[in-house]
């Protein structure tokens, strides 16, 4: 019985105030907006599929004293899976990656993704040189995954296998400009 993302992802994120967060489009964007009540420490993408991890890398380099969490789906990560190599070459210690893998493109009607067809994203992360990785398939692994995301000394990659259940869609703001200003005001007290 695969995990339900609506239980597993909040358990892995824990207190969302501990992170600066980037969410990939669709499932994880809705999910983190729900967990944070569309909080000002979250920048959730509504498009630009494949951008979440490199955006999180830029944020992690700019904010070395804060822990950055990139949460994204298997389809979003697959679109620019080579960004794992870009991250692996730099290994920023404050970057944590949570890949919510339901094996499908949920937003477009649950067509199978490559992870349903034999592709293992954790092994691709290992191959990219990311030292702290794990795959979570059971309830009793969630606590260890949560610890890895917030305590790892190097870049961490946690893959959580979940069922094809939708994330809640009630909270997400899709105004990329307003969200940019909101994020920077909260983090930097920047005017724009």
């Amino acid at each position: 019985m695969p995990l339900d993302r609506n239980h597993a992802v909040p358990a892995l994120v824990g207190n969302p105030a501990d992170f600066l967060m980037i969410a990939g489009l669709a499932g994880t964007a809705y999910e983190l907006a729900s967990i944070t009540n569309d909080g000002d420490n979250l920048y959730a993408l509504g498009g630009a599929m494949g951008a979440a991890l490199s955006m999180g890398l830029g944020l992690a380099l700019a904010q070395p004293k804060r822990r950055v969490l990139v949460a994204t789906g298997d389809g979003e990560l697959l679109m620019n899976v080579s960004t794992l190599a870009t991250v692996g070459a730099l290994q920023p210690p404050n970057l944590s990656i949570l890949c919510v893998d339901n094996g499908h493109y949920g937003e477009t009607g649950y067509q199978k993704s490559h992870t349903s067809l034999g592709v293992d994203l954790e092994r691709m992360a290992i191959g990219a040189g990311i030292g702290s990785t794990m795959t979570i398939e059971r309830e009793d692994q969630l606590a260890a995954g949560a610890r890895m995301l917030r305590e790892s000394n190097g870049t961490s990659f946690v893959l959580v296998k979940v069922s094809t259940v939708d994330a809640p869609k009630d909270k997400l703001s899709l105004d990329g400009g307003a969200n940019r200003v909101r994020f920077r005001q909260a983090l930097l007290r920047a005017a724009r």
Binding site: S54, G58, S82, T83, T86, R184, L187
Partner: peptide, 22 residues
């Protein structure tokens, strides 16, 4: 100094850097 695998990574990287004030 960030070596990219594809140029589009640098676009998103710039946006993330701006969010962090760099």
């Amino acid at each position: 100094s960030v070596a990219l695998t594809t140029e589009e990574e640098g676009v998103a990287l710039a946006a993330g850097a701006h969010l962090g004030g760099a």
